[in-house]
Design a protein around this nucleic acid. Structure first.
Lengths: 154, 154
DNA sequence: TTAACTGCAAAACATTTGCACAACC
DNA sequence: GGTTGTGCAAATGTTTTGCAGTTAA
């Protein structure tokens, strides 16, 4: 997914609004995450980025992702693993997690998104977001092409 | 939620089937998690259990939870946090996560459970499980009673 | 110029593992 | 009695933080 001018503009606007400097590191981290469809971990993102920016450090990636998360530019994905994974996609969507290879796939389900929630939830609090996480085996693992290689991004 | 004889029997049967010994530690960890509604982390479970069993160690809790997870006696909950949280409830249900206090609440939604998934997913793989995770503010935090106390169990 | 940001190194936190003794069957 | 499990301690993996030099505004 290429990054559009609009998305870069949105990123720059978000930085300016919050008094953040637009640094090379921030720009590249945002751009790379936006182009990725693999929901990479901070580590995976770092491995990819350090090839372009050899002086980049892993803790800058962590710090930057945390900052972006606060601004709402980036989201942390719901997982059962012990490494956080991130995405920059902002349209409403859901995830399918392959229990064999660890791959995360996006899908949309507008019918579900517009369904009213059960009444039981009214008493529980105020809902802001609903995320669906499916578990199973991706088609590649079903075909036996992956030997349990855990995958948290490039 | 009290633990029924049936659940203990199920636990013992699962152990025997897999050639696992029924130790005090395993029994108490299972019993305590089953009684809990807070989806505790390994650490939180340990803090609670060590009061009853002063010689218990944290790594036994981790090892035991991992074993139980393999047997399907216990599930790891989908979260965005970096600490795993567990539950022993086996009926189909979903979670509401309070972004302020970190509390996890269960709810059921049979209408959703029985909904067919979108066709788009057929090509993606084989689905085994669907978990819904809602985010928002619980009623207690809405009422301003919690000052951002992060809560991962007793 | 100046406040914010980065990289480094070290710390903090979460989880896993090797080993010797203890507990279950 | 023999195997499996536990506790201890140390290792590993992930994320955070203090600080001093660097960079964007």
């Amino acid at each position: 997914m290429p990054v559009t001018k609009e998305q870069i503009a949105r990123f720059e606007a978000a930085c300016r609004t919050h008094g953040l400097k637009i640094t090379q590191q921030r720009l590249e981290i945002y751009r790379t995450l936006h182009q990725s469809t693999s929901h990479p971990s901070a580590e995976a993102l770092y491995r990819q980025l350090v090839r372009l920016m050899p002086t980049l450090s892993l803790d800058t990636v962590y710090r930057t992702l945390a900052t972006f998360e606060e601004l709402g530019l980036v989201k942390r994905v719901e997982t059962t693993g012990n490494q956080s994974r991130f995405e920059a996609r902002t349209e409403q969507h859901h995830h399918f997690f392959c229990d064999n290879c660890g791959q995360l796939l996006d899908f949309t389900w507008p019918t579900f998104d517009s369904m009213p929630l059960p009444d039981e939830l009214e008493q529980m609090g105020q809902i802001r977001e609903k995320n669906l996480v499916l578990h199973g085996l991706c088609s590649r693992c079903l075909a036996g092409k992956n030997n349990n290689k855990q995958n948290t991004g490039p």
